[in-house]
Design a protein around this nucleic acid. Structure first.
Lengths: 336, 336
DNA sequence: CGATTATGTGAAACCGCTTTCACATAATCG
DNA sequence: CGATTATGTGAAAGCGGTTTCACATAATCG
């Protein structure tokens, strides 16, 4: 009388209830075309009735597909204070989940080609990997050879052969700089981000081109190098204030540096935006809460994640998708 | 002549190279005590030589353990701008990885007891789950019955039966309030967070108790309700300024609201900290970059994640660990 | 209308690891 | 010193799906 309760529902049970073989159950559950409608129905009914859910491990073992996509993040300083990747990741996760894939998070140092992450990826523990802002290409190159589907968030140094998504850094910087000219500025400086990164260089390029288009020539003195930190923004601004007379506009390559710049400007006794106008990049929370509220280039970070996930899914289907560049939007507030 | 290259190394290969049975290979690789040292050595050598890595799916299927821990995040607004959970998660991930566990990220709406997350967890796709700031206990309660090891980050409403980690919200708020009195304030208001949450209530309690200890009685007028947003902080402060004469100190339950409060104070023509002193909570990036720099209660968020992971690991070992409360530190800057 | 091609199905092998069980050998005991 | 108890090991049976293969039946053809 004691019913065997709580035994896992398996194909055995389903095939019995539906009156078909386990093979057919598998076919139905994997969307095989060549199954008679009646049986498809029978299986689906049984599945619904029994509340069946496939056993991932068993399925993986048999099929070789794990249903897992790794999101790999270099274990860096920036991670700890930057809401950026959190947002991207949640975008990725949402899309993957909709496609019945799981997100495996790997936060680790990627310098070594021999770390646990590297092992996991090479051992086929995942069906694909999405990378964030990589400084080292070595690992990626190796994985590409192994034909592991990959997507890179941010433009890679060696742009060939990789599938990537990125914000339109160039366009955003271009628009920001343009906006400053449009507001009547004539001496517009830039506080760059880390020029080692592709994003940093692209933003600088955008600034330069906008400058040329305005009919002026970008003076080298107007280019101050920062590293995305508050301090660097402040220091860069102080230097600019000393060296450049008539400075009336600054494009900072992220919001944090823009705030640093504003701090420096106010310490020098000048007023934003009356004397000097400031534009940031990211449109982070900081931009909204600072005083004066910061004009900034917004990138749709969630969309970035979703795009990355979609590119991954395309690859899993066997397609070879084109890289994807997402456009930006200038949010105008009081600072410029 | 064509060597079968690129075939996966399996126990079959290892057992041959090491001259033992597959069973013994398994024993060695799972740390079984009862194996002769010589054979352990033999197996380990073979493993090293062949660069072997266990096949997770196969191992899962056979053992019932997946090696996966879910990190479950309610798909809420807060996620998108709050670096908090990113930091916690990376702490979790780091510790888990060290213990040969993987982090499965699940960002989803948890209201339904029938969503994909719920299914995954109940279907045994993971060995345990770490939850963030939950509003609904229903899912958790069900999982607890299924004996799925769980850790909750943040204090749950129904505090019994759950293993959780949290910041010492009470202590932090207590210290913050105390600090204001120590600075000579006599009329100290609080801008609370969401009182529905345990954290919000605990911070209020800390404020109240510190107030009483100082010998004064906390006036109801001094308690303004916020919801952690900039706007709410600003609005709350405006109300306080109207209603309370001689206000000279404010404890805001997070940094964002503290900035909102400062904005309101300055708009009212008063100066921080000369007229009114302000303390925040979180010691986020905002606190460092605001003007004046914000005195704030710092919580070690990375440690919170590590603690959560460690509690999970303890449960996996069969222990029933005590909840864990992490202490805070008051970072004194210019605002108070 | 018999021969050929499509279509649908189930039996069974297999994916790579874990674990039970039986068994051989070594250590301990009365 | 024969009888117990420990200790170490391998053969083999799963774990729960997927996929090949052979086979039956239905549709199409000359």
């Amino acid at each position: 009388m004691a019913a065997k309760s709580n035994v896992r529902t398996t194909y055995a049970v389903i095939s019995k209830t539906a009156g078909v073989s386990e093979a057919t159950v598998s076919r139905v559950l994997n969307g095989d075309e060549n199954v008679h409608p009646d049986r498809i129905k029978a299986v689906q009914d049984a599945v619904a009735k029994l509340g069946y859910k496939k056993h991932r491990a068993a399925s993986s073992l048999a099929s070789g597909r794990t249903g897992l996509i790794a999101v790999v993040i270099d274990d860096d300083l920036s991670i700890f204070s930057d809401p950026f990747w959190a947002t991207v990741t949640s975008g990725i996760s949402r899309v993957l989940m909709k496609n019945d894939l799981q997100t495996l998070l790997m936060v680790a140092n990627l310098d070594s080609l021999d770390g646990p992450v590297s092992h996991s990826l090479q051992a086929g523990e995942v069906d694909g990997a999405i990378f964030f802002q990589l400084h080292k290409d070595a690992l990626i190159k190796r994985l590409v050879k192994q034909k592991l589907p990959m997507v890179i968030t941010g433009t890679p140094h060696t742009s060939n052969d990789f599938v990537f998504v990125d914000t339109d850094n160039f366009g955003g910087a271009h628009e920001a700089t343009n906006h400053l000219f449009g507001r009547g500025c004539t001496n517009v400086a830039i506080i760059t981000g880390d020029i080692e990164t592709t994003a940093g260089r692209q933003r600088l390029d955008g600034y330069n081109q906008a400058y040329r288009k305005s009919g002026h020539v970008p003076n080298k003195q107007l280019i101050a190098e920062g590293d995305y930190s508050f301090e660097s923004g402040k220091a860069a601004m102080q230097r600019l204030l000393e060296q450049v007379a008539n400075l009336d506009g600054v494009f900072a390559c992220n919001d944090v540096m823009a705030l640093g710049a504003i701090a420096a400007i106010e310490e020098a006794g000048k007023v934003v935006p009356d004397h000097i106008k400031v534009v940031g990049f990211d449109d982070s929370l900081l931009a909204q809460t600072s005083r004066p509220p910061l004009t900034s280039v917004r990138q749709d970070i969630g969309a970035l994640g979703e795009a990355a996930a979609n590119l991954m899914i395309a690859q899993l289907r066997g397609e070879t998708p084109e890289p994807c560049i997402l456009s930006t939007e200038l949010i105008v507030r009081d600072s410029a």
